[in-house]
């Protein structure tokens, strides 16, 4: 880790407007002899306008934590708020709607629908939010242009390189202007150069004052692009490093 960074106590954050605030989050899978405690009281705060990377070994609970933050999983104990909304207390339908409007996703294996063109894939979140198809396609085309893929908008995912597919996925995560973007290992399927370019792009187009970005990653080459890094181990955030406080 960079020697110029400053370390803070786990879970603490710089003062500012919180996008995500988790306190004592516990998540347990299964029961009996198959019981696995994935999160053991996680405290974490993510500020608006920052890019936080969640790092740690496999099985440390990173993916479970972003699933809880994104309202995909409910925690068993503790409190987790996204823009002051407690997703666990929301009715399922309302939570789904909130997720669709407020959160954007970028996945390790892109998860593009193979039978849809790039522009149609990007338009999916808009269609889910009730946009008319023609308007959604137009807007998706504009966002594809921002990720420099306007000329590939009619291509199917199989006709795109890995880097291009991830750029389409980034466009899809941004198209509906979500306030929180959650990325799971966005560069792990890409070679070094492509991964670097993708994360540069993500930082360039996604980070804004009113928006937060959480990236789960193993890829130490991209750590330098983060504002803060939260290191997890054995279901806990054991360290938060602020890379902005550099010499």
């Amino acid at each position: 880790m960079d020697s110029r960074t400053s370390q803070t106590a786990p879970g603490t954050a710089p003062s500012g407007k919180a996008a995500v605030r988790c306190r004592g989050v516990v998540k347990i899978y299964g029961g009996g002899s198959g019981r696995v405690v994935a999160l053991r009281g996680v405290d974490l705060q993510v500020e608006q306008g920052e890019l936080l990377m969640l790092v740690g070994p496999s099985g440390s609970g990173k993916t479970t934590l972003i699933s809880v933050i994104a309202g995909i999983l409910d925690q068993d104990e503790g409190d987790c708020r996204v823009f002051d909304q407690d997703l666990r207390k929301m009715p399922s339908r309302e939570k789904t709607r909130y997720r669709g409007k407020t959160i954007g996703f970028v996945f390790q294996s892109f998860n593009l629908i193979p039978t849809l063109t790039a522009v149609e894939n990007v338009a999916v979140p808009l269609l889910l939010n009730g946009w008319k198809r023609s308007r959604a396609i137009q807007r998706a085309g504009e966002v594809l242009d921002r990720v420099r893929l306007a000329d590939r908008s009619r291509s199917l995912p199989a006709e795109l390189s890995g880097g291009e597919q991830q750029r389409v996925a980034i466009a899809r995560s941004l198209v509906h202007e979500p306030r929180l973007i959650v990325c799971d290992e966005p560069t792990s399927s890409l070679d070094q150069d492509t991964g670097q370019r993708v994360i540069e792009l993500l930082r360039e187009v996604a980070v804004r004052e009113d928006r937060a970005l959480i990236i789960v990653t193993h890829d130490s080459r991209i750590f330098k692009f983060s504002d803060r890094m939260a290191r997890m181990n054995d279901g806990r955030v054991v360290e938060v490093i602020d890379l902005r406080k550099t010499a």
């Binding site: 994104a70 789904t96 709607r97 669709g100 409007k101 998860n111 629908i113 999916v124 979140p125 889910l128």
Partner: peptide, 11 residues
């Protein structure tokens, strides 16, 4: 993926 992105059950 659609479900994660906000597709409700009726959709």
């Amino acid at each position: 993926t659609l479900k994660a992105m906000g597709a409700a059950a009726p959709t």
